[in-house]
Design a protein around this nucleic acid. Structure first.
Lengths: 333, 333
DNA sequence: CTGAAAGCGCTTACAG
DNA sequence: CTGAAAGCGCTTACAG
């Protein structure tokens, strides 16, 4: 069905022009006559010519591939995020004729990424998550590979794209406060992560703004296991709290389960808010208030920033994206 | 930090030999003196030389990339599978110095895949799922691109790797029958999919083997919505059934939820078995009997089969992999 | 066992 | 505006 692959040489011969000219017509670089260009372009279209990405790569020492590194050990709750993120990156990349090679790493094993880099298979990489002590980040920086992180990094020199978690959390908390809900408890996750710190900061911003004094015994941090979360909930239930704010969707899931187990009604007995809204939560139960971040948007921003960076264009070191406060008044029980 | 990239030319000059020889030492192809080879290899190791995959690609007209195509619209339940599958493929591929480029398609849109193929960015592809009318499969076949499907295809000429669903389901059902459990109901999913047909066939095999006559009104097929499944469960509960067999994990999840809602106890009041066991189910509740398929194993098989196929080696058209019957007697209520 | 040379399919100074 | 030529970094007949 497919006859021999067409090359730039074939076209040049067929059209009686040099391959230099053909190349220029395609790339759009360099002066070229309007007429000649159109002739070439027409021929290309008619004969369905596709330049060999690999040959172009060799000539320009580029691969037209980027890598998305994602945690191979990510938990169930994170999967929808990575799936959508991958989709977004892949879609955006293809618009610039780039493709994405996956590399899966764990907190302490980045061999897949190293292979990719050493074999020169990619022009740049986007780091799907940021860790405080990130060996992948360190490695890329040291190698001088263009890269962008999704999520904030503590290193001010790395190019990062993130949602404005701090503002978002401040705003969500403000919504509660302005509804005269003051007795709120906060259940936080691993405070070693950067995003947790930002969320907590946003929460405190709102407290300051509304002049609400947060009692420390209503703030539960580092609740990194289901057991701890359940205990926190039990504790909270004794304290006449109006609303539980969960720092992420995993916590929120556990809280909802626990409340159900305890036969506590939402929102009559207590309200629940979450600083992160995932598809996992969405399908499960009604959270009264939550934050939604647009995964496609952050993926596109990461990808485009990286591609510009690869092309040596100036890019902002830090891109902060918006969010949406979702108010879901539970009408059905 | 990194000095200039080393090339084969540099090595040749440094070692006072021809680059042909260097190339041969690296690839291991062609005759070469033991001593010379070792000298080259040592130099390479010491200076951390890595051949340019892209140059090698051009010379051999290969990319050393394969593509994994996966559904961009896959549902929550399928995510863990694809995540593990991706990990498996990626790991296996890297052992042969291949990398995997992701392409996400939907049932009717395979533009991402088409781009990849037309731009010659991959040497082959593994299809992450099979559809009865699969445009991706059709496209690849017509283009003559080496590909392998994970899951069965109706087209006997396509190279496929699958678990032996039929035997697995026969065996699981047999376990029930041999425990003298005879009043079983089957809730099946979309019968248009190939895997559903195989599972049903396995179920019927067991019936025949044990001489059990299956009443049609205990078999619920095409239960493709939560509502339908719930109705099926309601119906089943009236019929004095001992065990519900769910054709997949999604159905099983719904069934468990419904039973809980109806305050039916498992396994006292009724047992539940599933023809597919996913991590989603696992974390949720206790299913008495289920089938486990090793995702890593199928990923490795897909990948290795594809790589052999790319190398023009003979590969089996159909590879059937094993399964594990998981008997989980619920001890806690 | 080893090498000179052509080639993979593009791009890009350089010259006109 | 257009072309001849060198080059990107490998591989592989072909010849010795």
């Amino acid at each position: 069905m497919d006859n021999k692959k067409l090359t730039i040489d074939d076209i040049a011969r067929e059209l009686q022009i040099s391959k230099t000219t053909v190349s220029r017509a395609i790339s759009g670089k360099g002066r070229i006559g309007q007429e000649t260009r159109e002739k070439v372009l027409r021929y290309i279209k008619e004969n369905n010519y596709k330049p060999s990405a690999i040959a172009r790569g060799l000539a320009q020492s580029k691969t037209f591939n980027i890598s998305l590194v994602m945690p191979g050990d990510s938990s169930l709750v994170d999967l929808p995020f990575y799936h959508n993120f991958l989709w977004g990156i892949s879609n955006t990349a293809s618009k610039s004729d780039y493709d994405v090679i996956i590399s899966m790493v764990s907190e302490k094993d980045i061999t897949q990424l190293v292979r990719l880099i050493e074999n020169n298979k990619v022009d740049g990489v986007v780091l799907g998550r940021t860790l405080e002590e990130d060996i992948a980040e360190k490695y890329l920086k040291q190698k001088g590979i263009p890269f962008v992180t999704a999520g904030s990094s503590l290193d001010p020199t790395v190019i990062q794209v993130d949602n404005d978690h701090r503002s978002a959390c401040r705003e969500l908390t403000s919504v509660l406060f302005s509804k005269r809900i003051r007795r709120v408890a906060l259940i936080g996750s691993d405070m070693k992560t950067i995003v947790s710190k930002n969320r907590l900061a946003g929460f405190r911003d709102a407290c300051t703004e509304f002049n609400v004094f947060m009692e420390d015994d209503l703030i539960y941090l580092d609740m990194d296991s289901e057991t701890k979360i359940e205990e926190a909930v039990e504790d909270i239930l004794k304290k006449n709290v109006e609303c539980i704010i969960c720092m992420d969707d995993y916590i929120c899931g556990c809280v909802l389960e626990k409340l159900e187990k305890e036969n506590v009604n939402i929102p009559e007995d207590i309200k629940v808010a979450s600083f992160y809204d995932s598809s996992l939560l969405e399908s499960r139960q009604s959270v009264n208030l939550s934050l939604k971040f647009n995964v496609t948007e952050i993926a596109a921003a990461c990808c485009n920033t990286l591609l510009s960076h690869i092309d040596k264009k100036d890019v902002p070191v830090k891109t902060l994206l918006g969010y949406e406060v979702v108010i879901r008044e539970a009408t059905q029980s």
